[in-house]
Nucleic acid binder design. Sequence first.
DNA 1: TCAATTAAGGATATAAATTGTCCTTAATAA
DNA 2: TTATTAAGGACAATTTATATCCTTAATTGA
Lengths: 160, 160
Amino acid sequence: MQLGNQVEWVLHCCSILASMPAESHVSTKDLAEFHGVPKEYLSKALQSLAQAGLVASTLGPSGGYRLNRPPKDISFLDIVEAVEGRRSTFQCTEIRRNNPCRKKDQRDKGVCAIAGVMHKADEAWRKELRAMNLEMLGKRVAADVDPALLEKGVRWFSSP
Amino acid sequence: MQLGNQVEWVLHCCSILASMPAESHVSTKDLAEFHGVPKEYLSKALQSLAQAGLVASTLGPSGGYRLNRPPKDISFLDIVEAVEGRRSTFQCTEIRRNNPCRKKDQRDKGVCAIAGVMHKADEAWRKELRAMNLEMLGKRVAADVDPALLEKGVRWFSSP
DNA sequence: TCAATTAAGGATATAAATTGTCCTTAATAA
DNA sequence: TTATTAAGGACAATTTATATCCTTAATTGA
């Protein structure tokens, strides 16, 4: 059970967008080149972010993407779910109903105990992602990465 | 990001094994038929459990599987990891190294902040699975399911 | 001893999801 | 007007998940 690469890509892209001056837009082309990933495929992932309302896009030269909300109002979960969807990591197919000892019309008392546990674990994962947002990420990045390098990045994306 | 069906299957199989009298063995054929899943494919998953040391197998007529440890010593995480592996749900491919502003030999301070968050969420998921074991599951099942049906199941697997 | 049954596992086939590319369209800025 | 951009449809390639088939060796019971 692995998250797709797109998740990693858009998280890094959002980190960039959060560090750019407001009103400035960053193109798919630049984001793809900066991260060394295929532009067309990254584009699909960014479209997912746009459809989820996390980013806004503008057309034409100097167009591209910007965050659509303050960084503190965009959680990791928002981003992960925009790309991966909202379905639980565990899908119960109700194989208990195949039990040959059961009567056909037998009703079940609530969800399968196994599914309950797996869904709770899934929720614990999501809770952790919900607790982290782009503002917090920005602070961590600022603490970890050479400020000169960060500034270079901003200028790289800003230059025409 | 979805867990495979094999995970659901073996969890149900382990639930059965935990409810069977000690020393009795349950065959792949019976487990597959009981749950309405393909025998040969379920067999692969059960082999994973055996390789992980969670179950022991015996050959020949009346052979099959039994738990290799007390139910309380087999966690959901043990079972999930036996089938799905131990790799994190998030794989960091270090795309930060592709940053064109970086010098080639630049060293990083620890893991990427994004990977750190994702791994922590992964660990929260695993922690939840680690906290549940087959003994606890047995109690929940006993509370949820008609005792007569449970007993019928045990007899179904016990009869030759 | 013999026949039936079983897990283990190799080889292979099929289906689905992931990853990636190509192209057209409409909007927009310079 | 021209170059640039996001959106998105169509398609291709690759990888993973799902499933089947077959052989082997161990074991049980007749």
